[in-house]
Simulated assay, not measured.
Amino acid sequence: MAPPVLTSVVPNTGPAAGTNPVTLNGSQFTGATAVMFGSAAALSYTVNTPSTITATVPPGTGTVNVTVRTPAGLSNTVAYTYAPTPTLSAIAPNQGPTSGGTSVVLTGTGLTGTTAVTFGSTPATSYTVNSATQITAVAPAGTGAVAVTATTVGGTSGPVFFYYLNAPSLLSVSPAQGPATGGTSVVLTGTGLTGTTAVTFGSTPATSYTVNSATQITAVAPAGTGTVAVTVTGPGGTSNSVTYAYLAAPALTTLSPAQGPTGAGAAVTLTGTGLTTTFAVHFGAAPAAFTVVSDTTAIAIAPAGPAGPVLVSVTTSGGTSNSLAYQRVAPPAI
Rank of each mutant, 00 (worst) to 15 (best):
M1P: 15
P3N: 12
T7W: 09
S8E: 15
G18D: 13
L24Y: 10
G26K: 05
A32T: 14
A32W: 06
V35Y: 04
M36R: 13
G38A: 09
L43H: 04
Y45F: 15
P50R: 05
T52P: 11
I53F: 03
V57F: 07
T61G: 14
V64I: 05
N65D: 15
R69V: 15
R69C: 07
G73M: 03
A79D: 14
A79W: 07
Y80R: 06
A92L: 13
Q95R: 13
Q95H: 12
L106R: 06
G110S: 04
G113H: 08
G113T: 01
T118Q: 10
T122C: 07
V129F: 02
A132S: 15
Q134K: 12
I135Q: 12
A137I: 09
V138R: 12
P140Y: 00
G142Y: 06
T143S: 15
A145E: 15
A147Q: 14
V148P: 11
V148M: 08
A150I: 08
A150Q: 06
V153K: 11
S157R: 02
G158P: 10
L165Y: 13
A167T: 11
L170E: 13
S174C: 05
G182L: 00
T189L: 09
T191P: 06
F201P: 02
S208I: 03
Y209A: 02
T210R: 03
T215Y: 03
V220P: 06
A223Q: 10
T227H: 02
T227S: 15
A229H: 12
T231H: 05
P235Q: 14
S239W: 09
S239V: 01
T243C: 01
S256W: 04
P257E: 00
G260S: 11
G265W: 09
T269I: 07
T273D: 10
L275N: 12
L275P: 11
T276N: 11
F279I: 10
F283C: 04
A286T: 15
A288C: 02
T291H: 10
D295R: 08
A304H: 06
V312L: 02
T316P: 10
G319W: 13
S321M: 08
S323Q: 14
L324D: 13
L324W: 01
P332V: 01
P332L: 11
